[in-house]
Design a protein around this nucleic acid. Sequence first.
DNA 1: AAGTTAGCATAACAACGTTACACAAAGAAT
DNA 2: ATTCTTTGTGTAACGTTGTTATGCTAACTT
Lengths: 237, 237
Amino acid sequence: MCNTVKVSPRKLDPGTRAALVDIAARLLAEHGAEALSTRKIAAEASTSTMAVYTHFGSMSGLVREMVHEGFTRLERQFAQVRRTDDPVADMILLGYAYRQNAKANSHLYAVMFGGQSLAGFSLTEDDRQYGRYTLVTVVDCATRCIESGRFSQNDPLLIAHQMWIATHGLVNLELGGYLIDPVDADRCYDSILNGLLIGVGDDPALVAASMAASTKRRRREAGADSEPAGAVTGTRR
Amino acid sequence: MCNTVKVSPRKLDPGTRAALVDIAARLLAEHGAEALSTRKIAAEASTSTMAVYTHFGSMSGLVREMVHEGFTRLERQFAQVRRTDDPVADMILLGYAYRQNAKANSHLYAVMFGGQSLAGFSLTEDDRQYGRYTLVTVVDCATRCIESGRFSQNDPLLIAHQMWIATHGLVNLELGGYLIDPVDADRCYDSILNGLLIGVGDDPALVAASMAASTKRRRREAGADSEPAGAVTGTRR
DNA sequence: AAGTTAGCATAACAACGTTACACAAAGAAT
DNA sequence: ATTCTTTGTGTAACGTTGTTATGCTAACTT
């Protein structure tokens, strides 16, 4: 009775699907979590609220799509960091890429890693696995740091997690507005990176050299292709 | 025309005010952010939704009250950590207190530090200052670490921020469910604390000793007065 | 060209925060 | 002790939210 698989009398329009995700992401980025509603999204896409349900099942489904999009965007940011013969400098630049991506998409970032439940959405174990996979770039970099003889600790996964935790903590408190003038976010990040790198066995002088090298590369690549050097400080005022 | 300051024909009942905060905190802790509504709170307090507005002005006001309550609760947790002649062990125990408090009140913690906007509430600068003040305990402890000669870095505020950022990052990812078996939260925290303490100048052997001492004290104080040793793992399943 | 199937618009539902309004209760004043 | 005034609180409403039931219509299959 069920071998009649007559399909697709009318296909879903992938264009409207992508448009919904884009509009939702823009609404979230520009006006925060409170502004994310099916009606506003539908109005901007000049369709009805039903489009959200036919394409994503519910509002949570749309949020999940945005989260996955956010992960791939972070992965692209990571991929833009070149692999040089100074793997520690590469690691520092990966941290800055993580931080910059988080600041540019602060609301989405809070849902991806901060555990913020948006519109009833909360991460499933699959989502988290998806997010963890993004960190293989960092693990690879840690492996290269170990192989270069800079680190004395030799568990790349654990080292990557240390970097992740520190950067994540910094970004979260920075976005929360907690890091101000005497000890602002930049100073905190420099000092905690410095401490952590020394802690895993690197030589203080080499750490300083790699941090200087990373700063130089960051300046250069900022002028090259990354962002148009405009206000990348996120949604702070 | 306005020098007639006739006051108080009917006082506010401070009992219902406290009851509303307690009920709201319990609803938030047990059923998450989605379950926090004026109607549910009013029903549990056997009053009307108007009570929320006369006592707190709005739902955000009630959330702000809970946030302040959360800060003082964290301060009390910090105060329970004894000051010994091993200030580094004290510092580690402060970190564990922060972490345990966050796990016991995960939803409230997300609002306090994670930047999660709950029911339209978001932190004001005063709230943040209130939160930063909670860290003076950690800054004092860092000062004692420096004075004892264990640390070579000598900016206690910056050191306290490093500890805060690392612990905050760990707790956030832990609550988000991101830290699992090969590198679970406990292992991550041990390694990042170890790295950070070495990074600020402490001797690796002394760090290991202080971490062992902190573990011993934590075991002892857990059996003494803290929590009833039950499921303190928060709302994870 | 006819049939079927699924996307989409409309409208409704329950629940939400918030507010206007009337009533009741309690201190102030006589 | 009684009246007045002020203010907390219950009721009901408004506009909004996510979600769903119901047709209609467009498009793919035969």
